[in-house]
Design a protein around this nucleic acid. Structure first.
Length: 457
RNA sequence: GUGGUUGUAGCUCAGCUGGUUAGAGCGCUGGUUUGUGGCACCAGAGGUCGUCGGUUCGAACCCGAUCUUCCACCCCA
C-alpha cells in the first residue's frame, strides 16, 4: 500500500488563516452594507433537485452543472437500452440532485415555496458558495462565493438606484476608487435591434457587440454578418458603437435614435429615472457610466443591467446584476418582478491583492501571549490568562514547556503584539512582565495596568 | 466542451546535446545565547523529479497516457 499525495479537485482552493482574515474583511464589508440597506440574510442548501436547476441557465449552463450521483445502487434504474441512447438518457436515472450553480435560482425557488409567509417586497441577501464545472482560469474557479442581494415584488426603480449606492459604498470601504459601474437596459438593446431592422435579434446582437473591447469593431461587423445581420443593419449600428459623452448626452442621443421604438424609449426613460433617483438622494453620478453595448445575462434580464469593472487590473468584472421580470414564473408564480446583483468575492480578493489594498493588520487575532519558565509559572500564567480573557483581551498561553526563545518565536511568527512572561519574580510581586514586541519595551506591571496597556495600544 | 501551456525540497526556481551520490535562495529544526523574538554566524533535516507506462546499457531530460496549473475560444463572478 503506497502513500498517496493528497490533492484538491480542479478549480478548488483551501483558505488558510491569512486568506480567511482577508476574505472576512471583504465579506464583513459587504454584509454590513446589505444590512444597512434593509436586506435580510437567507441560506439555501448546497444541493438542489436537478429539476430545479436544469433548463434555467441555457444549454451551456446545464453542461456546467455538477450532478450528484444517487446514493446506493445508482445504476438500478438504468437499462441497457438507455445506455445506447447516450448520456442524456442515462443522466436523469443516475442523478436527481445537483450542486447549486448560482444563488438566484435557489432564491426564486425559495420565494415560490414560501410565498404565503413572505412580506413583499422581499429584500434578501445571500452569501454562499456556488459550483460550476467550468475550466478554471485566473479569477475563475469551480467553487466560488457569490454575494447576492435581490428585491422581489416591486418594479420600483429605487431598487436599481440603491444597487448603485451599495456598490459604491462597498467598493469605497474596500479602498477601490478606479472603477466603473456600467449600466444599461435590456429594453434599449431591444430597441436598437428594432431600429436597425433586425427585431428580436438582440441576443445575437449583444453576444457580438460584447466583444467590441476585445476584438474591435471590424471583427464584430464580420461576426454580425455571419449571424445573418444585413449590411444595412450593421451600418445603422455605427453611431451606437461610436457613442461618446456623459450619461445625459448619451441618453439624449438614444431618445433620438430610438425614436421609432416604443420599447427602446421605455428603456431610456427607466435609465433616466434611476439617475433622477440618485439626484433626489443627494448623490452624484460618480462611477456610473451608461454603456449602451453592455449586454449580459440576457436569458433572463428584462430591464436594468449592471456590471462593475475595476480599471487597470487583469480580472474581469467583480460584480453584476439586473432586473428580471418573471424570475419565479418557471416555478409557477407569475408576475413577481425582481432586481438584484452579486459581488464576486473571489475576484474582489484577487483585485485587492493585485492593487495591494488589503490593510496590514487583519492577521492580529491574539493580543497577548503568556510565556513561562516552569510549572509554577505555568500555573500562575493560567490564572493570568483567564483574567485577560475576562477582560475581553484575546489571549493565549504557550502550551508546552519550552525555551524562552521558542516561545517568543511563536509570538513573533503569529504577529502577537504583546508577550507576558511569568517567572519567580513576577509571582513573588504578584505582577506580570509585559513586553511590546514592536518596540521591545518591557515593563513590570500589575495585571490591571497590563490590560490597560494592551487595550490602549 | 475545443486548442495550447505548466509540473524538480514547505515556497521561488537552477539543472547543458540523456551519463555516477539532483542544486541554490528563502523557510524549517538545532546550536552560538538554560530570563527574552526579529539580526548575524555555524550545523542539520527535508526530493517516489506530478502519476502510470514505454524507448534506452542508462531518463528530471526522449515518447505515450493521465492528473494538475496557467492561457485563448465558448461562457461567466
Amino acid at each position: 500500500m503506497s502513500i498517496q499525495k493528497p490533492t484538491l479537485p480542479k478549480g478548488t482552493r483551501d483558505f488558510g488563516p491569512k486568506q480567511m482574515a482577508r476574505r472576512n474583511y471583504i465579506l464583513d464589508t459587504i454584509k454590513a452594507t446589505f444590512k444597512l440597506f434593509g436586506y435580510q440574510q437567507l441560506e439555501t442548501p448546497s444541493m438542489e433537485n436537478l429539476s430545479v436547476l436544469t433548463g434555467k441557465y441555457g444549454d451551456e449552463g446545464d453542461q456546467l452543472l455538477f450532478k450528484i450521483l444517487n446514493s446506493g445502487d445508482f445504476l438500478k434504474k438504468v437499462k441497457t437500452a438507455d445506455l445506447e441512447k447516450g448520456p442524456s438518457q442515462v443522466l436523469p436515472k443516475v442523478a436527481e440532485k445537483g450542486l447549486r450553480y448560482d444563488l438566484t435560482v435557489p432564491f426564486a425557488r425559495y420565494v415560490v415555496m414560501n410565498r404565503n409567509e413572505l412580506t413583499f417586497p422581499f429584500k434578501r441577501f445571500q452569501i454562499q458558495p456556488v459550483w460550476r464545472a467550468d475550466r478554471p482560469q485566473k479569477g475563475r474557479y469551480r467553487e466560488f462565493y457569490q454575494c447576492d442581494a435581490d428585491v422581489v415584488g416591486t418594479d420600483s426603480l429605487i431598487c436599481e438606484a440603491e444597487i448603485l449606492l451599495m456598490i459604491r459604498r462597498v467598493l469605497a470601504q474596500l479602498g477601490l476608487n478606479n472603477y466603473d459601474i456600467k449600466v444599461n437596459n435590456r429594453k434599449v438593446l431591444t430597441g436598437i435591434s428594432e431600429v436597425i431592422g433586425e427585431p428580436g435579434k438582440e441576443s445575437a446582437l449583444c453576444v457580438s457587440i460584447d466583444k467590441l473591447d476585445k476584438i474591435g469593431w471590424e471583427k464584430v461587423q464580420e461576426e454580425l454578418q455571419q449571424r445573418g445581420f444585413t449590411t444595412d443593419a450593421v451600418a445603422k449600428l455605427e453611431p451606437i458603437i461610436d457613442l461618446k459623452g456623459n450619461n445625459q448626452e448619451k441618453l439624449d442621443f438614444l431618445k433620438e435614435f430610438l425614436n421609432s421604438s416604443q420599447e427602446g424609449l421605455k428603456g431610456v426613460e427607466e435609465l433616466e429615472e434611476v439617475l433622477e433617483i440618485l439626484k433626489h438622494s443627494g448623490e452624484d453620478e460618480n462611477h456610473v457610466e451608461l454603456d449602451v453595448v453592455l449586454a449580459r445575462g440576457l436569458s433572463y434580464y428584462t430591464g436594468a443591467i449592471f456590471e462593475v469593472k475595476v480599471n487597470n487590473v487583469s480580472i474581469g468584472s467583480i460584480s453584476g446584476g439586473g432586473r428580471y421580470d418573471n424570475l419565479t414564473g418557471v416555478f409557477g408564480l407569475e408576475g413577481v418582478s425582481g432586481v438584484g446583483f452579486s459581488f464576486g468575492v473571489d475576484r474582489i480578493y484577487d483585485v485587492l491583492e493585485e492593487l495591494s489594498l488589503f490593510p496590514e493588520d487583519q492577521m492580529q487575532s491574539t493580543a497577548v501571549m503568556i510565556g513561562y519558565f516552569d510549572e509554577e509559572g505555568r500555573n500562575y500564567g493560567l490564572k493570568v490568562l483567564n483574567q485577560f480573557r475576562s477582560a475581553e483581551v484575546a489571549a493565549e498561553i504557550y502550551p508546552d514547556y519550552a525555551k524562552v526563545k521558542k516561545q517568543f518565536n511563536y509570538a513573533d511568527k503569529k504577529q502577537i503584539p504583546f508577550v507576558v512572561m511569568i517567572g519567580s519574580e513576577e509571582i513573588a510581586q504578584n505582577m506580570v512582565s509585559l513586553k511590546n514586541l514592536d518596540t521591545s519595551e518591557q515593563k513590570m506591571l500589575s495585571l490591571e495596568d497590563a490590560i490597560l496597556a494592551i487595550k490602549n495600544k
